[in-house]
């Protein structure tokens, strides 16, 4: 469904992505991990063209992301994205955050959008907070709203960019639970995270990045059993034995 071929990206003379190739099949959950500054967030943001890239090719269901004629808003509306800092729109109520793109992009009627939003809020356990502003919610609650906002577009895939990194520890699980359930239902997901517990329970595949390169791209069992690359071994031993 998502296919990357030899993607490279530079900031000036600094190369942030080096010949990255991978593919995500329908229904697959792929976790992207690696030390900070390794290009994981940049990689995931190239999938919906939030970050442009200079070389290589990315296709989503056969549509080329980098091609000049691609209808990017349309492509993006089919891929949900969840950010590290939630990025809910602070000037709108929770329910309006979820309604907005349904009405403006998918042209749903406001009744239809509202019903969908409320159903999704119920699903993430926040229907009582629909009329509040995001600032009145905890981080974990905001992130669940952000997931609901992405799901409201009936996406073909969801991208998660460090969804729990900005959360207090006690709120991490409420977000991971929603994501786990989503994965169980067969959602195609690409998740940048340091939560190795989540990766070992939910992921099908794990991609390990270092210095802009995909160093390891393996099935979950192989990755946690015995990663081939030395850098991945070091990384795993650091984060699993702290």
């Amino acid at each position: 469904m998502i296919e990357m071929k030899n993607v490279s990206k530079w900031y000036g003379s600094f190369q942030v992505l080096k010949n990255c190739s991978t593919r995500v099949k329908k229904g697959e959950v792929v976790v992207v991990c690696g030390p900070s500054g390794s290009g994981k967030s940049t990689l995931i943001k190239t999938v919906n063209a939030l970050e442009p890239f200079q070389q290589g090719e990315i296709t989503v269901e056969g549509i080329s992301v980098g091609a000049p004629g691609t209808d990017l808003p349309k492509l993006r509306s089919r891929i949900g994205m969840v950010f590290q800092n939630f990025e809910l729109f602070p000037h709108m109520k929770v329910v309006d955050n979820i309604n907005l793109a349904q009405i403006k992009v998918l042209n749903r009627s406001s009744d239809e959008a509202h019903a969908k939003s409320m159903a999704l809020l119920k699903r993430v356990g926040l229907e009582a907070h629909a009329q509040k502003h995001p600032g009145q919610l905890s981080g974990g609650q905001q992130q669940r709203v952000a997931i609901a906002r992405g799901l409201a577009m009936d996406p073909i895939a969801m991208l998660f960019d460090e969804p729990t990194s900005a959360l207090d520890p006690e709120m991490i699980n409420e977000v991971l639970d929603v994501m786990t359930e989503l994965a169980r239902e067969g959602m195609t997901m690409m998740v940048v995270t340091h939560e190795m517990g989540f990766a070992s329970r939910v992921a099908h595949r794990v991609i390990f990045m270092d210095q802009g390169e995909i160093v390891e791209d393996a099935n979950k069992g192989d990755f946690f059993g015995k990663p081939r690359a030395e850098r991945a071994q070091q990384f795993l031993s650091k984060i699993l034995h702290h």
Partner: peptide, 27 residues
């Protein structure tokens, strides 16, 4: 207005005009 807000608006499929008038300018 934080860059992430712009990204969030675009990620939902809003175009430049919509992202500007609905998300960025109000803030």
């Amino acid at each position: 207005v934080p860059r992430g807000q712009v990204h969030a608006a675009y990620a939902l499929g809003l175009n430049y005009r919509q992202a500007t008038t609905l998300v960025i300018l109000p803030q």
